[in-house]
Each structure stands twice: as structure tokens, then as C-alpha cells.
Amino acid sequence: MVTIPRQFNGPPDSGNGGWVSGLVAQARLEQGHTGPVTSRLRMPPPLDTPLAWEHDADETRLMTHGGALVGTSAPGSFTREPPPFLDAKTVQTGYDGYPGFTTHPFDQCFTCGTGRGEGDGLRIFTGPVGDDLTGAPWHVHEAFGEDDGAVGVPVAWAALDCPGGWAADFSVQPMVLGTMTAEVYSAPVVGETYHAIGQLAQRDGRKFFTSTALYTPDGELVGRSEQVWIEIDVATFGR
């Protein structure tokens, strides 16, 4: 049994897409998989609700106790190059221009919400830096470290989540995560600062295809993702 604590929300009453995708991916990794994992969210992930796992050779599933499918994970692969490294000055420019400071559909989001305090949310505020890119520095708060001082898979995936969404600009069209393929090469460490980069690849109707990367200040790629976002009507989402 597992629950998604309310701290890890995206929209007010459902789980943060990256965190939940990472949770489902972690279950797959614990089955012995190595390499990229693709997680798909099938419904708004419920908060503070007991959920159950199902595993087979091809797929891991997160289920409600009523039998509804919350999300799946399976071996994945990347289709694009990761977003490019951006230097400290450029990611600071992105932070300073973060659209979420003025318009944010989910200001309590665990990853990018401006209403979350230090140690409560990740506070990754990626703004535009040109050429369909967003960027911001991310300083890893000690509250998110595990016993070894590194963050776990769900938090790392959450950090690889919203920078891609802001490359498609949540302030113009609210979206939620549908699919995320990610791999963490070196888990982010408490006390360190990373460069979070998002990139918009294309739009197809209500779907937005984006990529995200985390780099050290020296340009080492520590994790990357590719995502599909779905445009929503905030007033009716989850109802």
C-alpha cells in the first residue's frame, strides 16, 4: 500500500505529475529495470488515499482499491536531445522573468508553486530565456534529502517536471502532465544548486511535447525527461 501525501500536490486536489510519475517509476526500478522509464498518468492522482501496486513483466500499475488505474510505468526511450546547458547568468534571467510570479494556475504546486515556502515546495521558477527555452537555478533544500543526502526518485522526477510545462507556458494555457519519460544519472544532492532547463518541442492540438534537463553549474547532465502535457479547463479538471 502507498499514499500520495498532500504535500506533493500539483493542482490543489491531485498529485504533482512529476512526483507521482517518479513514484511509479521508482516501483519499476525496484523491480530491477535500468535506463529510462516511461510513466503515464491515467487519472488525477488522489491525495492521502490508500493505493495499491500491481506488477508484471511488462508494466507496473498504481491502482485505487476500487480498481481504478492511477498510473503505469514501463521501460522507455528518448526521442530528442536534452535541452542545452545554460550558464548561471542565463538561468538567473529566466528566474527573474518567471511568469508564475504574476499568473499561476496552480500556485501551490509542489514543484513550481510560488505559494510554497522553502523546504515545503521545490520552488523551481523557470522563466523564458529565448528559443522556446526556460531556465532557473534550483537550490536543493535539506528537507528533501534522504539518509545519504541525495533526493529520492519522486523528488528528482518532480524537479524534471514543471520546467517543461513552463516552456509551453502554464500562464497562457493551464496543463497537466500526461506522460513522462525520464532518467536520473546522478541524484541531486542537498545543499547543491542545479540549472533547471525546459524546452518546448511542438504542439499538437491540446497536447504539448516538452523536454527538461538538470545540470550542475559546470554543465554535467544529472537528469533529463521528455513529457506530454494536456491542456485543461481548470474549472472542470478532476470533476
Rank of each mutant, 00 (worst) to 15 (best):
F101W: 15
P82D: 03
R28Y: 08
R61L: 02
S77L: 05
T49F: 09
L133W: 01
M43V: 01
H33P: 00
R28W: 14
A57P: 04
Q26D: 15
V70Y: 12
D132V: 00
L47T: 04
E30D: 15
V91K: 10
G76A: 03
P99Q: 05
P105Q: 07
P82W: 06
V37W: 08
G10M: 07
Y98R: 02
I124M: 06
K89A: 13
T64C: 03
G32T: 05
Q7D: 06
V20D: 09
D13K: 11
A27K: 13
G71R: 12
E30Q: 14
G18F: 12
T79C: 05
E81I: 00
M63I: 13
T134E: 04
T114V: 15
D87S: 05
G17H: 14
T90L: 02
D96W: 11
L86I: 04
P99T: 03
V20W: 11
D132A: 04
D131C: 00
T38Y: 11
N9T: 10
M43S: 10
T102E: 14
G76M: 06
L51R: 11
P46H: 08
D87A: 07
Y95N: 04
D120M: 06
Q108L: 13
G130V: 01
A25T: 15
F8W: 13
L133A: 00
T103C: 03
V24G: 06
D132C: 01
Q108M: 10
T111G: 05
T38W: 10
R28E: 02
L133C: 03
L51K: 09
V24H: 12
C109V: 04
G15N: 07
A57F: 04
A25K: 13
T79I: 06
G76F: 05
H104M: 06
R61N: 05
C109F: 11
R80H: 14
V37D: 02
L122R: 14
G71M: 12
D120I: 14
E81T: 10
S14E: 04
D87R: 12
G115M: 07
T79H: 13
P45S: 02
G97K: 14
F78D: 01
P83E: 07
D131F: 00
A88M: 10
G71L: 10
G121I: 09
E59C: 11
D120L: 06
D87F: 12
G22P: 12
T60V: 15
A25P: 12
L133Q: 04
Q92C: 00
V24Q: 10
E30N: 09
P50F: 03
L41C: 08
E30P: 01
T90F: 02
C112H: 13
T126I: 01
P12R: 08
T72F: 06
G119H: 14
E81V: 00
V37R: 05
F78L: 01
I124E: 05
V24L: 07
L122I: 10
A27P: 00
P84Q: 08
D13A: 05
G97R: 15
G32N: 09
F85C: 01
Y95T: 00
T114R: 13
P82N: 04
M63T: 14
F106D: 06
M43G: 03
Q7E: 09
F110K: 07
Q26I: 00
L47G: 02
V20H: 12
E118F: 12
V70W: 13
H104E: 07
G94I: 01
M43N: 09
T72H: 09
D131R: 02
V20Y: 11
E54A: 13
V91Y: 08
P45D: 05
E54T: 09
T114K: 09
V37Q: 07
A57V: 12
W53Y: 11
A136N: 11
